[in-house]
């Protein structure tokens, strides 16, 4: 039950993208087509769960016993970079179409602040291993959800008659604001 609440809380109530502003760059950059955003969401979710696991292990078996807590940011980002490389190599070999579609944004998962943010948050809130994994998975699902919602709206926006100054990023941000407004309705749920 506790895990379920944590999961729902992470996916909907404290949605990583729309409420906590983590992972905005890929959210605005890759959300032009539903199909690429699904792929991006799945790849990011995978990296997030792995990052939650890896950062928990590093924190509790290396940094705390050896009294190296000040190396936390440094070690987490290096592990995330290695994980992203792994996903990239896997996709390149097995799903080349998706690999090409994601282009520059695939290596950019490394600099997706949602991944590092979740690793740091999980440690700061002293989650145990199970909670960290649920938190990581929830973050990934929440990110994917926001990305797909946004992509769906933007596909329709392509055909809308938008005033010239609002074209492009401006209307995307205002759309995101309205989505975020909808999500803030969940605030009292848990």
């Amino acid at each position: 039950m506790e895990y379920l609440l944590l999961f729902i809380g992470t996916v909907i109530v404290n949605n990583f993208v729309l409420v906590q502003f983590l992972g905005i760059c890929p959210f605005l950059g890759v959300s032009k087509q539903v199909s690429t955003s699904v792929g991006m969401g799945i790849a990011t979710t995978f990296v997030m769960v792995m990052a939650a696991l890896a950062s928990w292990l590093i924190e509790h078996f290396i940094l705390v016993p050896l009294d190296l807590v000040y190396l936390r940011t440094l070690s987490f980002i290096l592990v995330i970079a290695a994980l992203v490389q792994l996903v990239e190599m896997f996709l390149h070999k097995s799903i080349p179409g998706l690999y090409r579609a994601m282009g520059i944004f695939l290596p950019l998962i490394t600099t997706n602040c949602a991944v590092l943010g979740l690793s740091l948050n999980a440690v700061l809130r002293s989650y145990n291993l199970g909670e960290s994994l649920v938190y990581g998975f929830g973050a990934g699902v929440g990110f994917t959800l926001a990305l797909i919602l946004m992509a769906g709206i933007r596909e329709e926006l392509e055909f809308a008659d938008i005033p010239k100054p609002l074209k492009g990023a401006a209307i995307a941000l205002i759309t995101a604001g309205l989505l975020s407004l909808a999500f803030s309705g969940f605030a009292g749920m848990i």
Partner: peptide
């Protein structure tokens, strides 16, 4: 609303539109 999360998106969106008008 402007100090809550949706306000951030909307403020920046409106600013970007203004920026576009000025540079035009």
């Amino acid at each position: 609303i402007l100090t809550s999360p949706p306000g951030a998106f909307i403020t920046l969106g409106v600013l970007l539109a203004l920026m576009n008008i000025i540079s035009d």
